[in-house]
């Protein structure tokens, strides 16, 4: 499943880039809790998307695959009970009049019960969850 989007943030690209190791900054994202770095230097946290009608907290591990001035590639692995979500997230930063344009493209694989039960809804849910976390994260940069 491929998803994509684009939005503008007031943060500078350098501030956005600094986030991947910035546990303190990420801890300020309202939908993240228990943010920490693991032994491999990956960010671990519990992410609970805001919009769904029932809380769906996911334990996530975010690993930076590539990082450069123009963007980053992140692999995000999330689990919620027997459900697993893997996202390869490509973020591109270009300067904009108010700060930075962030364009994102995600290759998403859903595994476990949600792959069945979520067929009709998962696309929208993942899309809005990604939008939400990216906006929130940009906002703390």
């Amino acid at each position: 499943m491929n998803l994509s989007g684009r939005f503008e943030t007031s943060a500078a690209a350098t501030a956005l880039l600094a986030l991947h190791g910035g546990v303190d900054a990420l801890a300020a994202v309202p939908t993240l809790r228990d943010v920490r770095l693991d032994g491999s230097g990956n960010v671990r946290a519990v992410f609970t998307p805001r919009s769904t009608f029932v809380p769906m907290p996911f334990s996530i591990t975010v690993a930076v695959q590539q990082a450069g001035a123009e963007g980053v590639v992140l692999s995000v692995h999330g689990t919620r009970g027997p459900t697993a979500v893997d996202v390869m997230l490509v973020l591109g930063f270009t300067p904009g009049p108010q700060g930075t344009y962030v364009s994102w493209a995600a290759d998403v694989a859903i595994r476990g019960p949600a792959a069945t039960v979520g067929q009709r809804v998962v696309r929208d849910l993942v899309s809005s969850a990604l939008e939400e976390i990216l906006h929130d994260t940009a906002a703390v940069a």
Binding site: A115, T116, V117, Q119
Partner: peptide, 14 residues
Amino acid sequence: YDEHGQLAAGNFYD
């Protein structure tokens, strides 16, 4: 099964 090898009819819902 979907492209990821996930069963798309995993209970009596589908």
